[in-house]
C-alpha cells in the first residue's frame, strides 16, 4: 500500500540543482519569496517567469512531479483571483455579468496575487524535489546555529527533525501492518456507517500511539547509550560543500533582484 511513498517528495538525481549546496538553495528560495512581493509590473512577472523556466531546465525534474506538487494550491489560487476580481473596484469597468462588474484593477491585482502564489509554491517545490530531507535539515541546522547564542536549540530541533524523517517509513509500515491485522479480524476501513468507520479508525490509532510511545522510550535509551548529549562538542560526518554553482547562483540571483527593482512601476 505504501511501497511507493516518496518521503518529502524528494526525487534523487544528478542535475545542476541536485549538486548545489542546500544552504544556497534555501537562501535563494527565501530571497525569491521576498522579492516576489516587490514585483508590480507585467515586465517583472515576465522576468520571473523566464527565471522559473530556466530553473526548471536546471532541475531535471519531470514536469508531472511539479504539477502533482502544485495541484492542491490551484484551488487556493483560483479562489484568491476571484476574491480580488469581485471586490476591488478601481479603474475602468472591463465587463459586467448581471449585477457584477469587473474592474481593470481588480483583474490585474487578482492575476498578480495568483502569479505570486504560483511562483512561490513552484520554487519551494523545486527546492524539496531536488534536496533530500536530511540535507535540508543539515542546512537549516547550520543556518540557524548562530541563534544558539540566544538559546535557540538549533541542534536539538535539527535532531528531532531528522529522527522524525527517519521514522516516517517505520510509521507507514506499522500502519499497514495494523490495517491488515484489523481487516483480518473483520474491521472495514472503507465501508459501513460513519460510526463503524470511526471505530475502525480508533482501532488503528490506539495501537499506533502505544507503539509510538514504546519506540520513543527505546530510542531515548539507544541514543543516550551511544553518548548523545545535545549539540555541544559534537562533530559531524556529513559535510555541506559550497561549490562554484552556489557562488554563481548567489551572483545571478543578486543581479536578478537589481533588475527587478528597475522594472518596478
Amino acid at each position: 500500500m505504501f511501497e511507493n511513498v516518496i518521503i518529502g517528495q524528494y526525487l534523487p538525481g544528478r542535475s545542476f540543482l541536485h549538486h548545489m549546496d542546500p544552504r544556497a538553495k534555501i537562501a535563494a528560495v527565501l530571497f525569491l519569496i521576498i522579492v516576489i512581493f516587490l514585483v508590480n509590473s507585467w515586465n517583472g512577472y515576465a522576468l520571473f517567469g523566464a527565471a522559473a523556466i530556466a530553473v526548471y531546465f536546471l532541475s531535471g525534474v519531470p514536469f508531472r512531479y511539479i504539477r502533482k506538487g502544485m495541484f492542491p494550491v490551484f484551488i487556493l489560487v483560483i479562489l484568491t483571483f476571484f476574491l480580488h476580481a469581485f471586490f476591488t473596484r478601481e479603474g475602468d469597468i472591463l465587463f459586467s455579468v448581471g449585477v457584477f462588474s469587473f474592474y481593470e484593477e481588480g483583474i490585474r491585482q487578482g492575476l498578480f496575487i495568483s502569479l505570486r502564489l504560483l511562483l512561490l509554491v513552484y520554487f519551494t517545490s523545486l527546492l524539496t524535489l531536488t534536496t533530500s530531507p536530511i540535507d535540508l535539515t543539515d542546512a537549516l541546522e547550520q543556518m540557524f546555529s548562530p541563534l544558539e547564542r540566544f538559546k535557540f536549540p538549533a541542534y536539538d530541533v535539527a535532531m528531532m527533525m531528522s529522527i522524525a524523517i527517519r521514522f516516517i517509513p517505520t510509521l507507514l509500515q506499522e500502519t499497514e501492518k495494523i490495517i491488515k491485522a484489523q481487516t483480518a479480524r473483520g474491521a472495514d476501513f472503507n465501508k459501513g456507517s460513519m460510526r463503524d468507520r470511526m471505530q475502525a479508525f480508533v482501532s488503528l490509532l490506539v495501537p499506533l500511539f502505544v507503539r509510538a510511545f514504546r519506540r520513543a522510550e527505546d530510542l531515548a535509551y539507544a541514543m543516550e547509550a551511544r553518548g548523545y548529549n545535545g549539540g555541544e562538542g559534537r562533530t559531524k560526518l556529513r559535510l555541506l560543500v559550497w561549490g562554484w554553482r552556489d557562488t554563481l547562483c548567489c551572483v545571478l540571483i543578486a543581479a536578478f533582484g537589481v533588475v527587478l527593482l528597475f522594472l518596478r512601476q
Binding site: 531528522s162 524523517i165 527517519r166 519506540r215 527505546d218 530510542l219 539507544a222
Partner: peptide, 12 residues
C-alpha cells in the same frame, strides 16, 4: 545493543 533493531537505528 538493544532488543528491537528498528528502534535503535537513529540515522538516515
Amino acid at each position: 545493543v538493544f532488543q528491537n533493531p528498528e528502534h535503535q537505528f537513529v540515522a538516515p
